Amino acid sequence: MELAHWIVAGLLALFSLYSGTLKAVRSPDRLRPMMAWVDRVPLPALRALGALELLGAAGLLLPPLTGTATWLAPAAATGLLLLQAGAIPVHLTGGDRRIGLNLALLAAAAAVLLLPAG
């Protein structure tokens, strides 16, 4: 089960790293083809979401790998779970009904919390 935890946590961290980096550095014009909702949030909020995803990715992996402040990993997973729980209504209220990825990421964050890390 520990292997399953690391696979799910690693994939969630990779996706969060990718998505967070895009939100943190790309302009809304370049994000719009991938994320139709970017016009409905202020740029500082978009950058903050990107920063939260980057911190979540780091928090999932670095504390358990270093053995320091290991309580941060479940906190990061909880944060990413809450982030996706908040993203679903944003997609649904904006006419963008594509929430499959959000549901998968929410499930992955929940799995990281439930699967034993070792």
Rank of each mutant, 00 (worst) to 15 (best):
G20A: 05
L31D: 08
G118V: 05
T78A: 12
L72S: 04
L80Y: 00
A110Y: 05
K23A: 14
E2S: 14
K23F: 13
I99D: 04
L92S: 04
F15Q: 15
M34Q: 11
K23R: 15
P74R: 14
V38Y: 07
D29T: 13
A117T: 15
G10F: 01
L22P: 07
L80V: 11
L83I: 04
A58Y: 00
G50I: 01
L3N: 09
L106H: 01
L61Q: 00
H5E: 07
Q84A: 12
A87V: 08
L3H: 06
E2N: 15
L113N: 04
M34V: 13
T93P: 04
P116W: 05
L54A: 10
P44E: 02
L3D: 08
G56V: 07
A108L: 06
D29F: 09
V41F: 15
L61S: 02
A73V: 02
Y18K: 14
A58M: 04
A9E: 07
A87C: 06
A117N: 11
R40C: 09
T78S: 09
L17P: 15
G10K: 00
A85L: 14
G95K: 11
W71V: 12
G50S: 01
P63Q: 02
D96K: 07
A58N: 03
I99R: 04
L52G: 15
L52K: 08
H91A: 06
V38N: 03
G100E: 11
A13F: 02
M35Q: 11
K23W: 05
L52I: 10
L113P: 09
L101W: 00
L114K: 12
T66V: 08
P74F: 05
G10D: 03
P74L: 11
T70S: 11
L46V: 09
I7N: 04
T66K: 03
H91G: 06
L113I: 08
A24E: 01
T78W: 01
D96Q: 05
A73C: 05
A107T: 10
A117Y: 07
A57F: 01
A51T: 12
L22H: 05
A75N: 07
L106C: 10
T78K: 02
G118W: 04
I88S: 00
V38I: 13
A77T: 11
L22F: 03
G56E: 03
A85P: 09
P116S: 09
T78L: 13
L105K: 08
V41T: 13
R47L: 06
G67K: 05
A77V: 12
L72Y: 00
G56R: 03
A104F: 02
W37N: 03
S27M: 08
L92H: 06
A77Y: 02
P89K: 00
A73E: 03
L22A: 13
L12G: 15
A45E: 06
P44K: 02
G67S: 07
V8K: 10
A107S: 07
G86T: 14
M1D: 13
A75C: 13
R47E: 03
L46I: 12
M35A: 13
V38R: 02
N102I: 07
L46S: 06
I88A: 00
V25I: 12
L81V: 13
G79A: 00
G100V: 14
A109R: 10
A9C: 11
L82T: 13
A109P: 15
G100P: 12
W71L: 09
G100K: 07
A24V: 04
L61V: 11
A75G: 09
P33D: 05
A57L: 01
P33V: 14
L83Y: 04
G59M: 01
G95A: 09
